[in-house]
């Protein structure tokens, strides 16, 4: 295993990222958005990289978290920690339902099912506009307050999100290192054998969905507080697609790859959109390049670079002893 993949290396990289973003970025909003998406993309990675499930349903959970924040903060002024907990619980519950139904099929049909659920939830949000605000979304979502002061400055809210992000990331690292996470890897590698040696594989996949859904919904709630709106677009199919694209660009073999993927996408989008209104076209080219030449994603590139510099002597002869 590459030393960069070790849990403490991953946590150190995350801490460096959280401390470095304010030094290099002018916009606190952009920096906060990067952390929120990094969290959500890492949760998607738990499904894609660790369990081998390509879920187009991540937008559902993100949208649900958004609406939980929108509804409970604008109508009843529920304390923010409770709202975040509520978002995570509802996200987990929805993911359990979607996961439970989707994993009954495999491969293409599994993907189609998550896609269908994604559309279903979008139209539900669109239809029940009394609850969700429909096309307009829910306006005036307030920021959390610490000691009576609302975190209205971009960098004060960044700090709030950064703390949440580091805690969640550490929890996700713990999950991937646990005996549960290692069983997920076995299921990804060879589901038939995992079942043959006694693991109820469906239950493991559903639990992976639940954890992923909880974190994604938490990210959605933080996002609504960031932009002050709970928009319909957060539950759209496009959000699912965005999360998946970031996951793939970042590389699905390590959780920190997801942080790279989210950061790279959002920074590139920010830079390109000021140059050219048709920037999505350029982004398409970037995706093509990743799919063709960079299958380990950005993380794969980092690991290769690390090996080249620090482990030049060790790389080639890993399989030379004993036959």
């Amino acid at each position: 295993m590459n030393p960069l993949d070790k849990p403490f290396a991953q946590l150190a990289l995350v801490l460096v990222t959280v401390l470095a973003l304010p030094l290099f970025l002018k916009s606190g909003i952009l920096a906060t958005e990067i952390l929120i998406f990094a969290m959500v993309v890492a949760a998607c990675n738990l499904l894609l990289g660790y369990t081998g499930l390509l879920s187009f349903g991540q937008g559902i959970f993100f949208g649900i978290g958004t609406y939980v924040a929108g509804i409970f903060l604008t109508r009843w002024s529920v304390p923010v920690p409770l709202v975040l907990a509520g978002a995570a619980i509802l996200g987990a519950a929805t993911a359990t339902l979607v996961g439970w139904l989707s994993i009954r099929r495999q491969g293409v049909y599994f993907v189609m099912l998550t896609l269908a659920f994604s559309q279903l939830f979008y139209f539900m949000a669109y239809t029940f506009s009394g609850v969700t605000g429909g096309d307009n979304g829910l306006l005036g979502v307030p920021r959390p307050a610490i000691g009576g002061n609302a975190l209205d400055g971009p960098w004060s809210y960044y700090t709030y999100v950064a703390v949440c992000f580091v805690v969640i990331f550490a929890l996700l690292v713990m999950v991937t290192q646990s005996t549960f996470g290692r069983t997920l890897l076995a299921i990804r590698e060879n589901e038939g054998r995992a079942a043959a040696i006694g693991f109820p594989t469906k239950l493991f996949k559903i639990e992976a969905f639940a954890i992923s859904g909880a974190v994604t919904a938490l990210g959605g709630a933080l996002h609504a507080m960031l932009i002050g709106v709970a928009p319909l677009s957060n539950i759209e199919y496009h959000t699912s697609e965005l999360i998946l694209i970031m996951t793939i660009i970042g590389g699905s073999s390590s959780l920190f790859g997801s942080v790279l993927g989210a950061g790279f996408y959002l920074l590139l989008a920010d830079a390109l959109s000021t140059i050219w209104p048709r920037w999505l076209l350029l982004l398409g080219l970037v995706l093509v390049a990743v799919a063709l030449f960079l299958q380990g994603g950005l993380w794969g590139l980092v690991v290769r670079g690390y090996d080249l510099i620090f482990r030049r002597d060790r790389a080639p002869n890993t399989s030379a002893e004993e036959h």
Binding site: M174, T179, F180, R182, T183, I197, L203
Partner: peptide
């Protein structure tokens, strides 16, 4: 790891706890 998983398969419910370290078994 292949064999550890096969041995763990006899008590799979333990492995559902996402905070339990594999080495704890």
């Amino acid at each position: 790891e292949n064999l550890r998983l096969a041995a763990q398969g006899r008590t799979p419910w333990q492995a559902l706890a996402p905070w339990r370290r594999a080495e704890a078994n």
